[in-house]
Design a binder for these strands. Structure first.
Lengths: 122, 122, 122, 122
DNA sequence: GTGGTCTAGACCACC
DNA sequence: GTGGTCTAGACCACA
């Protein structure tokens, strides 16, 4: 599953797990319909409490990245659906990041260039 | 200063203050060398504890948006300096946001288009 | 028998089976005295463990929708009998649902109208 | 606050708390803008762990009955907003309840009458 | 074996 | 003092 937890990153563990799984979906390492490890198993693998993994799974579910099926398995969602809620949140955080760049003296052109670079690397 | 605090936004108050000031700098409403209200005054204006305002000011200072001068005044930093630390943070959060978009099925083209749109509006 | 199981509905499977059978009785597709498939057969048809089907059958029996006859067959109950227990449960859940509607700002008239609409469609 | 917890009801405690608060809002005992006790205080009052109360509060928040403001207080939501999601859930559970009544031999007229009665009492 | 729920104790960020 | 997060141990419903 290729998830790594960093003790010192400051990010809550459940966030890190969530982020890694989102990254895996984005990169195509987890395809639609893929079934994640059970919370208990992943917890054992990562050395964290299974409640923590569950937290991450529930978050992913509420964000629409996965669904929890009747057997409580966690399945990667067919992701053609982009909710308005997501777009709005995305907009807010992008806007804030752009403002930070501008406030630091970066020009709009530079910001665009940086974004394009990140996009290629993602 | 035109700072508005929202009780229900979920964001911590000190974050909101910090964000509004960054936005003001980005938009040019606060120019280099401008002096911010003292924490006590701004706190009174906004109806929040002055420790909270101080928190925001310290955050802004640590991010390089302002400097605390010898008289404890808070001065907007000449902002041609973009720290590597800032770039790195920016990169991290952008990368994560991009991954979220991809994981939701947005194409790179769409992401670029959305970013350009937000850039114009900021 | 026309029972469909949804993996992702969140409802336990035995509940889904129970609900579908209740719906069939309500719609007249299962008449008094009709004999249901054995738990094993229905389980095989639906691709679920027969214990799960048994669970549903026992629930239906305890609710008075079916009886388990001497040959262990499951027979649809002559349904003129409405137990007080059922009425009480019905009352409780209806009351809660009504309260939720009121708490969300729906008027009693609207609630009545909605109920009538659902009644026609059921 | 008039919340009573029953050990033997079978309902999870956090559900009971949630239900009681919804009932209080529906009955007008909790008006828009009212502030609930902190999770810790209510927990102490009811003799349950504060996490359990928090569960109830988060549930109420996700259902749109209350908002958690920036100071983490729990405030009763202005409830003119009825989400489609709520209506859909309401529809599903009503439909099922109606079917149960029909399967027990109750006529549509009787169901309507019962509903009206419950509505008056709520 | 799995997740849901509850309890409980700990540390931390925020106010 | 407050909730957020994490850990942990327990019981139960479900499959």
């Amino acid at each position: 599953m290729l998830i790594r937890i960093s003790e010192s990153s400051g990010k809550p563990i459940y966030q890190q797990i969530r982020d890694e799984i989102v990254a895996a979906i984005a990169a195509g390492r987890l395809e639609e319909g893929a079934v994640l490890l059970s919370a208990r198993k992943l917890g054992k693998e990562l050395g964290v409490n299974y409640h923590t993994v569950n937290n991450a799974y529930n978050l992913l579910s509420s964000e629409g990245f996965v669904v929890l099926d009747s057997k409580k398995r966690v399945v990667v969602e067919p992701h053609e659906l982009v909710t308005d809620e997501f777009k709005q949140k995305w907009r807010q955080s992008e806007t804030m990041k752009i403002r930070e760049g501008l406030a630091h003296g970066l020009s709009k052109g530079e910001l665009k260039r940086l974004f394009a670079k990140f996009l290629e690397e993602a």
